[in-house]
Nucleic acid binder design. Structure first.
Lengths: 332, 332
DNA sequence: GGGCACCCTGTGACCGGTCACAGTCCAGTC
DNA sequence: GACTGGACTGTGACCGGTCACAGGGTGCCC
């Protein structure tokens, strides 16, 4: 085995066990029809040499790598990160592995990431496509493997694992309307995000259908700071605010407290995400829970189906309203 | 190129450009001494065929994959996740790529993850080792590649990228002492975590050196819920609390508010992490900032150094105290 | 005893790159 | 005109697995 420091190969194991390399391969791949003593000899040799199969060699000949490539955003948001993390765990349960790379929303960056993963012979790609520009980057590109979109929140395409953003926004607005609010304002996320667009659109539809007045829609950038800034620009007549995520809701509540206004006494606030802190913020935040875990599992199901040549039915994951103490009936 | 749906190979490109496969390889690897017309012909053929180099083949022959393997925790905490994310970006800047897998803290799980990554011919491994059991799992294992530990927060070993936990805890306690507090209590993280141990140990040292009385140390599990629970078990005489992370601090503050006690009026609270919400919680939280981004970059520096055969000097990353509105001088 | 099936194992080609080693061609020199 | 050297390109082995196929035994039947 004088092969540098590369570690033992299948041939080394074969030589030690006194069999052929092919027999070693068969043992490793659980082929039937190996005599028990032979199998034991091979396993023993593997143990003694500390042999580990080289997956590059395997991928080279099979053309498949049992690996899912993941393309994440450059910014470390807990939502996408925990979703990708869930993909990793679900993939492992399915006997697959994952490889992650990240890309900014530019077409060039997304294509680079695709190139890299395809070059690594991944069997499928899971792409966090929160922004429309990411989807557009794929136009005219043939990735040669199935591509699953994550967290678009949009149309229930068969190759996307997403949460139903419209339903979530509808829950939030209906909750406020149910409490008796009629002057409801919205702090949207950055509208380059499909999720932000969908929540805003559904906010508009829901308030319009209820015959409520249209208050100005403010646009934040998901951060607590932008929520704080939005707090200063609220419509004075608003009695409730639906924020497109929890972080902006926290910033907004802070701004309100600074201005001497209480939540929910003076103003009701609903968030979106149900982050770790939401259940113990002051006041605990009414919000919409997104099951990122489920998105991850769904993504792996889609990968498995596509690799097997199936075309699974479209299906959005339903969010859930969590009512806490930041919402109440209007005071007047 | 009738090779199934595997895509064109280097030989296909060579045939189309009318050169040998070796010339194609030279063009791809930027070897000097290629006639410009030849290079152009090759690049054109690559373009036309949509050729992408197969990295499995390359990894097989070179024995190196230009890839860093990362082992993360099973639980999606923002700290480790954003650190790993930072590793990914720093690696990309260094021309490397990453592959991620996760493991629970058991020895078997950590070893499986190592096996997998080594089998994938990674050039180095970055391991989130927040718990001592993870480090112990490595005892007696020869991974055959450099292993960099992440976020142990402990001893400044040359192969670890960590934040100086002792310094951070010292900042927090000194800040409270500086405000005049003498009865300071600590809500520790789960003590299976090295970070939690170090913060607690330093809390003890700092208070003992200042001659302060020893109040009971409560143990949480990092979650807001456990902070909330700790709120009910606080020493009635305490005037300040140092929480081992921000989430527990939020839970604690919520519990205090529920009991009618105000922060910082009745009690000062310091957190640890400086999460996204900390700057806009009620009140904005005094905390210790950890630069996860820097840890990620440092990890990649260490990888590059180790792969080059160097043994870089030990160096911990300094945390930073961020003073906000949750701390004040004791009221009495 | 020969033939045949079945069980188990071995042989060699091949995946798509890189590496080491040879060429081939042309200009410059004696 | 033959010789040398540099610039450029080609040839074949090899990395470590898997695949297709070809054996060598043994037991059973005719």
């Amino acid at each position: 085995m004088a092969n540098g420091n590369r570690g033992p190969s299948m041939h080394d194991v074969a030589a030690r066990a006194g069999v052929s390399h092919q027999t070693v391969s068969r043992v490793l791949n659980d082929f039937p029809g190996i005599r028990p003593e032979t199998r034991d000899k091979v396993l023993e040799a593997i143990e003694e040499l500390g042999y580990r199969r080289n997956l590059a060699a395997r991928a080279l000949v099979t053309g498949r790598s049992q690996t899912i490539g993941m393309i994440g955003p450059e910014i470390p948001d807990i939502g996408p990160l925990s979703t990708l993390h869930a993909v990793e765990r679900a993939a492992r349960d399915a006997g697959l592995h994952t490889m992650m790379t990240s890309a900014d929303p530019s077409a060039a960056s997304v294509r680079d990431a695709l190139e890299f993963l395809v070059g690594r012979s991944v069997d499928a790609i899971v792409l966090v496509a929160q922004q429309r520009s990411v989807l557009e980057a794929l136009a005219g590109v043939d990735p040669r493997v199935p591509v699953i979109h994550l967290l678009t929140g949009g149309e229930p395409a068969g190759s996307a694992a997403s949460i139903d953003q419209r339903a979530g926004a509808r829950f939030a607005v209906d909750h406020l309307i149910g409490l008796g609010h009629t002057r409801i304002q919205h702090v949207a996320g950055p509208l380059t995000y499909i999720e932000a667009q969908l929540r805003r659109d559904e906010f508009r539809s829901a308030t319009a259908e209820a015959g409520l007045p249209e208050l100005e829609i403010l646009e934040g950038d998901w951060t607590t700071d932008s929520g704080f800034a939005a707090g200063a620009r609220l419509d004075p007549s608003a009695t409730a605010v639906f924020c497109a995520n929890d972080d902006m809701a926290f910033g907004l509540i802070h701004a309100l407290a600074t201005a001497g206004r209480s939540v929910p006494g003076d103003l009701s606030v609903v968030g979106y995400d149900d982050t770790a802190t939401s259940r113990h913020s002051l006041p605990p935040l009414t919000t919409v829970r997104q099951d990122f875990e489920a998105v991850g599992r769904r993504a792996v199901e889609l990968v498995v189906a596509h690799v097997a040549g199936e075309s699974p039915a479209a299906q959005l994951i339903a969010p859930e309203l969590v009512v806490r103490a930041s919402t109440a009936a209007p005071s007047s």
